[in-house]
Simulated scan of single mutants.
Amino acid sequence: MARTIPPESPSGVLNARAARESFQVTRTAPPPELAPYVDYFWVLVWDLRGREPHRQRVLTRPSVHMTFTGYWTAGTTRDRIVGVVRDEFVEEISGDGRVVGAGFLPGGFRPFLGAPVAGITGRMLAVDEVFGPVGRALGAEIAGLRDAGAALARLESFLLERRPAAPDPQAERAARAVAHVAARPALVRVGELAADLGIGQRSLQRLFQEYVGIGPKWVIRRYRMLEAAERAAAGTGVDWAELAAELGYADQAHFTREFTAAVGTSPARYARAQDGA
């Protein structure tokens, strides 16, 4: 699989310097047949033998992930489907191991799930809870493949075998809506998004609950917070009051509270910690 995505692609991983010192992530683009559903495939590997465990905090995006983890030192494996995470997402790794995963486009998992994506928001399911016995068999097969490329190829083929006969127009519409939010940092209200897309607010809410798994207000706020985290990571020379206003917050105090809740520390402190990372 040679469709490597450039490493500068944003991932929502916080505290980039500590992350780089603890694990490596590579991402590959899906084949054309899966492009309407899968944003990227990814592999994360780590070797912390003789070192302290690493706790990684991620500022999540509105997407579903299907992952297969092998903890080689412990001799254990785990497979799961992770719905949209509303709040913080923290994962601890130790020893050595690997994760192979698929990150779905917003709306892209709905055709595989066969039910509203909001039903799995905030939940982590075993793969067989969605795909049945073939999902359990897939987990066992990937667990036995120490070569990451082979494991990733097997995951890709599994999804190719189960892709819908034709793309779902509503899934594509949901993906475009979220991409629009991501591309427009100045967009801060659901009404603006609905107007931009030429859709009523109630219809927009239903689309997001059915296909994205969470409402458009949360999606807008999360992308604005991702924007803030990226600005903070770039250095300490940020006018926080100006940034708060730009991102649609009533005042700097409100922005600071939300940033601290999402990232785990204040904007200024986070920027100081990242300076030079």
Rank of each mutant, 00 (worst) to 15 (best):
T76D: 12
E227H: 11
A241G: 14
V99H: 03
V181N: 00
T121R: 06
D239F: 11
R20L: 10
V100M: 05
F23G: 10
S22K: 13
Y37P: 09
F23S: 12
S203E: 15
G276K: 10
A115L: 07
W42H: 06
G70D: 09
F109N: 00
S266N: 05
G132Y: 01
E172P: 04
F255H: 02
R80F: 15
W72S: 07
E230I: 13
A35R: 10
T4H: 14
L207V: 03
D87Q: 14
R154G: 05
R176N: 10
G264D: 05
E21D: 13
P133A: 14
V90S: 08
A268Q: 03
A273Y: 04
V43G: 02
I199F: 03
D168V: 09
P267I: 00
E129R: 08
P30F: 11
G135P: 05
M1I: 11
R123D: 03
F208A: 01
A233W: 08
V181P: 01
P185R: 04
A277I: 05
D128Q: 15
V99S: 14
P164Q: 08
P10S: 10
A182G: 12
V85N: 09
I120F: 06
R49S: 12
P116V: 07
D39Y: 05
P6K: 11
E161A: 15
T69D: 15
R49H: 14
E156Y: 12
G200W: 01
T67S: 13
L34R: 06
D147K: 11
L105N: 00
A140R: 13
F259H: 03
A182P: 04
Q252F: 09
L145G: 09
E230Y: 02
A29H: 15
V181W: 00
E172L: 07
A153L: 07
D79G: 10
I81F: 12
R27W: 14
Q274A: 08
E242L: 03
L48A: 00
T73D: 11
V25Y: 15
P133N: 15
E141W: 04
T260G: 06
I93V: 06
R269K: 14
A148Y: 15
T60D: 12
R86G: 11
L204S: 04
R202A: 04
P32K: 15
I120M: 08
